[in-house]
Write a protein that binds this DNA or RNA. Structure first.
Lengths: 98, 98
DNA sequence: GTCTGTTACGTTAAACGTAATAATG
DNA sequence: CATTATTACGTTTAACGTAACAGAC
């Protein structure tokens, strides 16, 4: 099954344009981010990034994948809100009725 | 962040009506399923199940949560298909063009 | 020489299974 | 006594950080 944490890191790498900057924003070490991207590529069977000078450049397939990834992550956030709303209303009920 | 594996297990428990049956269908031990449900309840701050005879009975809040959970899991599956489709077409291109 | 990404190595922490326990039918 | 769920215990394994390494400016 797909790992949401890896997907979030993937988006961070695209947004920041480098492994190091993404690692700073995700609370991971650069090594961890690099490994997550390697694992994602291995899982998909596709290279998402190419070397570019000292850094990396996303391949077109990476931008395409990001479209669906961003959407899925948004829906996960929506579910979290949905669940949180359900459960706080639940607690209000018990507060009132008990 | 929410764990998709736990969400899948949660749906399996609802579908099968017991920890043991869910565990058989998920490839987990009953203890693992029980712990996953305990962790989910702790995370949400809500009891999702109640004891019922020798088994458990989902509380109404569990069924409500399941609506959003099923939708999210479906969207994850759709993303997997989407990603797989992107990457196979990518591989076809490289097969043709290289 | 500095900066970025990757890989090797050891460690840590989350999650598991087995087995023991409690409770119900 | 059989069945279900939970908890305790030890183990395994996935993922991490540090550090060493390789390539680009």
């Amino acid at each position: 099954m797909i790992h949401l944490t890896v997907l979030r890191t993937f988006i961070a790498v695209l947004d920041h344009g480098s492994i190091i900057e993404a690692s700073r924003n995700c609370g991971y070490s650069p090594a961890a981010v690099s490994r997550q991207m390697s694992a994602l590529q291995a899982r998909l069977g596709v290279r998402l990034f190419e070397p570019d000078g000292r850094g990396i450049r996303p391949r077109p397939i990476a931008e395409e994948l990001a479209v669906g990834a961003r959407r899925l992550l948004d829906e996960c956030d929506q579910f979290d809100d949905y669940a949180k709303g359900l459960c706080t209303s639940q607690n209000v009920h018990s507060l009132v009725l008990v």
